[in-house]
Design a binder for these strands. Sequence first.
DNA 1: TTCATAGTTATCGTATACGATTTCGTACTT
DNA 2: AAGTACGAAATCGTATACGATAACTATGAA
Lengths: 232, 232
Amino acid sequence: MTETAVGSSAVESAAALKAHPESKSQQAYAAVKARIVEGTYTPGYRLVLAKIAEDLGFSVVPVREAIRRLEAEGLVKFERNVGATVSGIDPTEYLYTMQTLSIVEGAATALSAPLIDSIAIARARAVNQEMRECLEHFDPVRFTALNQDFHSVLFEHCPNPHILDLVHRGWNRLASLRSSTFRFVPGRAQESVREHEALLQLIEGGADADTIEKAARQHRAATLDAYLSTTN
Amino acid sequence: MTETAVGSSAVESAAALKAHPESKSQQAYAAVKARIVEGTYTPGYRLVLAKIAEDLGFSVVPVREAIRRLEAEGLVKFERNVGATVSGIDPTEYLYTMQTLSIVEGAATALSAPLIDSIAIARARAVNQEMRECLEHFDPVRFTALNQDFHSVLFEHCPNPHILDLVHRGWNRLASLRSSTFRFVPGRAQESVREHEALLQLIEGGADADTIEKAARQHRAATLDAYLSTTN
DNA sequence: TTCATAGTTATCGTATACGATTTCGTACTT
DNA sequence: AAGTACGAAATCGTATACGATAACTATGAA
């Protein structure tokens, strides 16, 4: 587990089924996205079409298309006759993204809850345990990845792929902000791990959808609150 | 009021501010989107790049880019070496879209509620009154447009543009299904108008966010339920 | 020294061209 | 008559080329 770049799963798995060589625009999309999510291209980074095209070894047209797609996902900003830059670390954007995530993650969790079996719960617990260990060794990068894994386990049988897609977009958006000021408010991580366990117990106990949704939403919202409290 | 095509408002208004002539890919995007939303291109319609390019009077590259953008919004399906078609009327997709809409509309309404003033409430009531009249004259197309207007008034000061964007995407998605089997379950429209009034009263009365969110969510969900009950 | 302006460079935007892939029709075989 | 294989047409995918726009720089005047 612990894959970092989370993609529009539906699209990508469909593409994988066809034994087709990936189109170059597809490749360019994946490549640039990966660089943004990994942090090679940090926010504000100037994405020059010709340069990227040369790097990847093909022409500008597919690259252009890829950039446009990333723009639609909010990962890059594209200005006419000026060019593309990796989307910024505007605190307001962070707030919007986190708030939206709290809503869609809450919904995704509530919808998935009735479909989660005990095996998945056990796996989620194992991931959460790993997260605890990360805290001891202070490994924030892995912690974040595991956090996504934890929720991914819960979302495995999410009955609505659209909502799942929105979750993934949010995650990617946040990933592009890596190593910005928006991470690791002291103490929040510990609390987060505790909330995970509480969430699992709610699911195990067959709590009603509304309770689970509120808990999951609050889980994300608390991280946002923790950040906000540090700045004010 | 009563504009039909709802766009990523942030992007479009920004583009409007620059006195720039719209780029051709932008024009192509708007044009094709409009045709889909208006119903000129119905689901399943084959979008041949060269043909569209000729119609619009420019080359295929910008058209291609536009189609890709529409793909990202879910309005068209693009298959490699085969081409683009207007996204289909799969009942499952309808369910996904409506369910997602119920969630994001619910959230958008709850977030907006505290910011809605009495003038806006009055305007919303006026729109709702028009909707009643539409029911008498049986004008479903206008009814749908007014329905969007009603909610748009409520969302005018929505503090989170991301969520608003998701709402708009959902609306566009549904619009592309116009004149499909997914509309106008008998009696549902009347109920919808009543629910609008109830929603306004909740907002006026300063109901708490949770109550408003549930009401708004249920309002959309009920339409979905009405559809589902007709098929089973 | 600072500001305005003109010219240069970098970069984007789009058209055209051609190769690759798919689809569809037709002829041939069983 | 039905199915298969082959070939032609349609369509997509990408490269290259060139025009348009904006950013930058240098030069001159106040």
